[in-house]
């Protein structure tokens, strides 16, 4: 039986409510706006926050790209893409530059985003102070009073226990000198891409019922100490095994047969694009 859903799955008033929360989030950069997270055809914690943002924003002219930890072809990314496509009939793409709306789980694409694009990040844990203060009523007060010693304290504890800041992903950032924000579990490598981004960045947490945003050209600074500056993952001397890229975020893979580790671009569409370019160039040279 074919059910005819409304355009983009939601009814119009649901979309409006989500957009209203989104507008507020954009108006107050880094502030977590509560919203009435809907029941979705996928389970909470599997990207429902991002998906709700995507569905509330998508229009007939949009071209959607969905990434799951750098991959366009993972099951989760494909399922979300299919859901969007089945309920809207709009075009989807793997190419970052062509997309107008990019929903991503835990990565910011390697190709720099440009003005007019929207990046939607899926967020499991929107509250950067949660490990420090379990009560929501209290963390709300801490945000209101700009009392962020807890965020620095957690980093201080890491330095005391392990000698350096050990957040692998989700390293807290200060947005527009006001709100400390969890950037969703993107690697530290991607934190810099949030700063003064040309594209609008929206973050949605479906289970936690929060939407927040980093508007274009907003100052985003990763938290650190004067004598322990923020450092990203380093891939110095490494290049992608497939396309030869350097200076991008890479996966370390282990080959059981040869017993060696090799590196490969985490952003698959970027890698593929580079390889295509190379083979065209080679083809042109041989002609």
């Amino acid at each position: 039986m074919q059910i005819n859903y409304n355009f983009a799955f939601f009814d119009e008033s649901s979309k409006r409510e989500i957009r209203r929360a989104t507008l507020k989030a954009i108006a107050v950069p880094g502030y977590q706006v509560p919203f009435a997270s809907r029941e979705m055809p996928i389970a909470r914690g599997w990207g429902t926050g991002g998906l709700q943002l995507t569905l509330s924003l998508v229009g007939l002219d949009d071209i959607v790209k969905v990434i799951d930890q750098g991959s366009d072809e993972s099951v989760n990314a494909v399922s979300i893409k299919k859901l969007v496509q089945n309920t809207t009939d709009i075009r989807t793409t793997d190419e970052t530059a062509k997309a107008t709306l990019i929903q991503s789980r835990h990565r910011v694409p390697e190709i720099p985003l440009r003005a007019g694009q929207i990046l939607v990040l899926q967020v499991p844990m929107p509250e950067p102070l949660r490990m420090y203060e379990p009560r929501e009523a209290e963390t709300k007060k801490l945000h209101a009073e700009k009392e962020y010693s807890g965020a620095w304290l957690m980093l201080f504890e890491q330095i005391m226990n392990y000698g350096s800041m050990t957040t692998g992903a989700d390293h807290p950032v200060m947005v527009h000198d006001r709100y400390v924000m969890a950037p969703s579990p993107i690697p530290k490598f991607d934190n810099a891409k949030l700063n003064s981004s040309e594209a609008l960045i929206l973050l949605g947490a479906g289970r936690e019922k929060k939407i927040y945003a980093v508007p274009p050209y907003t100052k985003v600074v990763s938290l650190d100490f004067e004598d322990y500056p923020f450092e990203t993952e380093s891939f110095e001397d490494r290049s992608c095994r497939l396309c030869g890229s350097t200076g991008v975020f890479m996966d370390e893979l282990y080959d059981d047969a040869s017993g060696t580790a090799y590196f490969q671009c985490n952003d698959t569409s970027y890698c593929l694009e580079r390889m295509n370019e190379q083979s065209w160039r080679e083809g042109a040279e041989s002609r």
Partner: peptide, 24 residues
Amino acid sequence: DFTSIGNIAEKMIAAGSRRVSEME
């Protein structure tokens, strides 16, 4: 649940210190 030195640092962070060596 935080370290003892972290507990002391908390108050200093709150008072504006951002230098680990100093707080340590």
